[in-house]
């Protein structure tokens, strides 16, 4: 874990209905500056977990500490000022008439002078590269623009922690790549809940796998995202860019190679492009598997032996 603890969750349990626990005995820590992917099938408890970190659900058992401060009703405002939460549905996040007003909403509420509000708005819009949309009406934005505007609305708070719920949902490949670029350029602790494992792979160094309200895995993303057995056991699938296993024979023996497009992954990290998924490498690999050519090395594949 990088730096000191930013988030600490101790024995957290939560249920809407006592008979069906949503989260059970979760213990979790996140350091300053860490980027953590939260993966899990539908109903695993990812969104609920994020909502709890930001105090939208307070009737839980256990303890949540944000920067060492215990999350309680009485200090909710204080804790929330440190956390930015990006909703899955950007339409719920954007409610003012223009992008600029929406981005200025938080700093104004936190009582910053108008000059500081303007500085923060400029900074937030610049970070997500939507300075040109400043005066645009919210309803005229495209899906990708809305997502970036939604991120800008929380960046203007200058949060120490950024929580994102399915940020890549309903984005086209180009907007998805732009978003990866934006997220990789952000500072602070980031927790991203997503089904999009390629997206997690391109943005997060650490991944937590939730299943039926429990943490099943917590460790390096590269490791869990290549663990087909573990993922499938919890109703997930390998990321598209990793999922194609090529079996071909050399010397009469069978070798199973996993197509790992490391170069693409690095490229995606550095430039926010996520080529691994967007350039359809999975399809290439599938094609190669079908024909048994094993051309993966030409593409910089590592050819990890299973």
């Amino acid at each position: 874990m990088r730096g000191d603890k930013m988030i600490e969750v101790n024995h957290l349990s939560f249920a809407y209905d006592p008979a069906e626990p949503v989260l059970s005995d979760i213990c979790f820590q996140a350091g300053r500056g860490e980027t953590i992917g939260l993966i899990g099938a539908n109903g695993a408890g990812k969104s609920t977990f994020l909502r709890m970190l930001v105090g939208l659900e307070l009737s839980f058992e256990g303890e949540i500490l944000i920067a060492g401060e215990r999350l309680e009703k009485k200090n909710l405002d204080q804790v929330r000022s440190r956390i930015g939460y990006v909703f899955q549905d950007s339409d719920s996040q954007l409610f003012m008439t223009t992008v600029e007003e929406d981005v200025a909403f938080a700093p104004r509420n936190y009582g910053f002078p108008e000059e500081e509000v303007r500085r923060r708005v400029d900074m937030a819009l610049e970070k997500v590269h939507i300075e040109h949309l400043r005066g645009k009406s919210i309803y005229k934005l495209s899906g990708g623009e809305k997502k970036r505007a939604a991120i800008a609305t929380i960046l203007s708070m200058d949060p120490e922690v950024i929580l994102m719920d399915e940020p890549s949902a309903a984005l086209d490949p180009k907007n998805r790549r732009n978003l990866i670029h934006v997220i990789n350029g952000l500072e602070g602790t980031r927790i991203i809940a997503s089904h999009d494992l390629d997206f997690i792979r391109d943005t997060c160094e650490r991944t937590v796998l939730l299943s039926e309200g429990r943490i099943i895995y917590d460790g390096p993303s590269q490791k869990v995202l290549q663990d087909r057995e573990l993922l499938e056991a919890h109703n997930l699938e390998l990321p598209l860019s990793l999922m194609h296993v090529i079996t071909h024979t050399h010397d009469g023996s069978t070798h199973t190679h996993m197509f790992v497009h490391e170069h693409a992954a690095e490229h995606g990290k550095d430039h926010g492009t996520g080529h691994g998924a967007d350039h359809g490498t999975g399809h290439e690999a599938m094609h190669q598997a079908d024909h048994g050519t094993g051309h993966e090395t030409e593409h910089g594949a590592s050819g990890i032996d299973d």
Binding site: D77, R80, F87
Partner: peptide, 12 residues
């Protein structure tokens, strides 16, 4: 959700 989003951004 809109109201929650407002509260999360300091609306009191």
């Amino acid at each position: 959700r809109v109201y929650q989003s407002m509260c999360l951004r300091g609306f009191r």
